[in-house]
């Protein structure tokens, strides 16, 4: 995962609260098979509206989203963070985040920065008076700079440390590689009977032919026929 220390880029004011993950990315996109390429799905319904903030060219390369309280509520879909990340957002600033969404951001290299509502209002004002204005977010000092104001934000130490080092959960676990290898050695001795999927063992081969022979006409539900 890329390391986040200082992020500079276009700030986008999203004047909304309670943005749920269905609004961030609708369920129809969950049938996709990739983890990347969700940028077009981000805020799908709102993007149909020409006046939506991301449809204004000054904001279209947004990197820092500044939004209202309770961002990311609803379904636990990790796709919501994937969509924000794929669009280009690396930082979401809000007064409060939903738990699961908050956990998912750090897993995917996105900073969820917490700021009081007064700071959010001020940032909104600054970003709107000069659309396309850039914001600098510094994880070392835990501050946000916009125009000539500097504002502090909150992030927990563990998450901050992970983001600054670009550690994802897998990297962190792999730091315990020696423990895993030791466990595997012990496992091979203590539990030699545990099954392996390879090489594959089968029951005798049998040919599988399609089961149904006849097709049955379907007249519709009981209720429709009175």
């Amino acid at each position: 995962m890329e390391k986040l220390t200082v992020i500079t880029g276009t700030g986008v004011p999203l004047r909304r609260s309670n943005v749920d993950t269905d609004q961030i990315i609708p369920a129809v996109f969950l049938k996709r098979v990739t983890k990347s390429g969700f940028e077009d799905a981000l805020f799908y319904a709102w993007r149909r509206d020409p006046s939506f903030v991301l449809n204004q060219k000054e904001y279209s390369d947004g990197k820092v989203l500044v939004t209202g309280p309770d961002f990311g509520i609803g379904s636990s879909r990790e796709h919501a963070v994937w969509a924000l990340h794929d669009y280009g957002f690396r930082v979401i600033i809000a007064p409060r985040f939903a738990d699961i969404f908050y956990g998912n951001t750090a897993k995917n290299g996105v900073l969820a920065a917490i700021m009081p509502m007064e700071s959010i209002e001020l940032l909104w004002k600054l970003l709107e008076e000069e659309p396309g204005r850039s914001i600098t977010v510094d994880l070392q000092t835990r501050t946000v700079e916009c125009a000539d104001v500097t504002l502090p934000f909150q992030v927990d130490d563990y998450t901050c440390w992970r983001l600054m080092n670009g550690f994802d959960d897998i990297d962190l676990t792999l730091q315990h590689e020696a423990d895993i290898t030791a466990y595997e050695k012990m496992r091979a001795v203590k539990f030699p009977f545990k099954p392996k999927t390879l090489p594959a063992k089968h029951l005798p081969e049998e040919e599988v032919k399609s089961a149904r022979e006849e097709s049955i006409d379907w007249a519709g539900p009981l209720s429709a026929r009175g």
Binding site: K35, S76, D169, T173, I180, E184
Partner: peptide, 12 residues
Amino acid sequence: GTSEVEHVMATQ
């Protein structure tokens, strides 16, 4: 979840 699936794939 999906992140955990990947975690198990990579680290068991």
